[in-house]
């Protein structure tokens, strides 16, 4: 079972890579997503659907979903299907995963902090913008592969990604921990 799962995943990655050339450049796609976010929080962004799809395959891609696994603070896993273009914050909310989103994806808080559990997947993401980094500065339990859930947008390469919710509540304010001043 392990093997079949693995090969399926491989196929997705290859397909994803091929698709990557079809879509617009990552930079522009990203900034349009970001702008949309600040104007219209929590709306789906199916930017890949419009990106140069004359073929039948394009529509399939638009309706495609990737598999994302959230790992909560007790270590329990929940696997969900996320449509391409949707942010992990929205996906979590649609699937009743307890990920806060105080500013609703407008990059003004750090409550949707997630940790990408695999460095390989982390490297497939666009680098965080200054604005995202500003918020990550304040995230509790920051790691090298921390991101904001609202800025991680589902794309084919991310199929199979595991995201951990920080175990903050368990450790907070125990044994003389002092919150950092801001």
């Amino acid at each position: 079972m392990f093997i079949t799962k693995f090969s399926r995943l491989g196929a997705h990655v290859i397909k994803g890579l091929r698709r990557g050339q079809l879509t617009s450049t990552p930079g522009t796609a990203y900034s349009s997503v970001f702008n949309n976010h600040s104007l219209q929080p929590l709306k789906h962004q199916f930017f890949s659907a419009t990106a140069g799809d004359k073929s039948q395959e394009g529509e399939d891609e638009a309706n495609k979903k990737i598999s994302v696994t959230f790992v909560d603070k007790d270590g329990e896993e929940k696997q969900i299907k996320v449509p391409i273009g949707m942010s992990m914050l929205e996906a979590a909310h649609e699937n009743d995963i307890e990920l806060e989103g105080a500013c609703e994806g407008s990059l003004a808080c750090s409550t949707c902090h997630v940790i990408v559990m695999d460095m390989e997947y982390y490297n497939k993401l666009e680098d965080p913008t200054d604005e995202e980094n500003d918020m990550l500065d304040l995230a509790f339990g920051l790691t090298d592969t921390s991101r904001l859930g609202c800025q991680v947008i589902a794309k084919p390469e991310l199929d199979g990604i595991h995201l951990a919710l920080p175990a903050a509540t368990r450790n907070f304010a125990v044994d003389g921990y002092k919150p950092k001043p801001h």
Partner: peptide, 10 residues
């Protein structure tokens, strides 16, 4: 001290 998220955990 702390931001909204800090108070959430608190």
């Amino acid at each position: 001290t702390g931001i909204i998220a800090t108070n959430l955990y608190c």
